[in-house]
Amino acid sequence: MNSTEISEIIISLFKQKEIMKDISVDDDFFDLGVSSLTVVELQIVIEKALGKSVSTSLLMGSPTISEWISVYTEKMQQDSLESNNT
């Protein structure tokens, strides 16, 4: 999966949440009044789609769509590097 595909998946899952419909990729979603439970819900559906997991605290500390895309893209790259090395 390349970074374009990752970002498409993440954006489409965000847009499925009513409150995220009009969000742009650089909006801080806590400013929209999004609860931490909604953040965790998005984390769960994204991780199921990507097959990768990262810590919630990292995601909470990066509360924009574009930051989430880089977090998951890095995680994908790291994991593929590690599996290449072994």
């Binding site: 931490s36 965790v40 984390q43 769960i44 997991s53 919630t56 909470m60």
Partner: peptide
């Protein structure tokens, strides 16, 4: 083992 809610933890 976590501090806030983390579904994986």
């Amino acid at each position: 083992s976590g501090i806030g809610l983390d579904p994986n933890l």
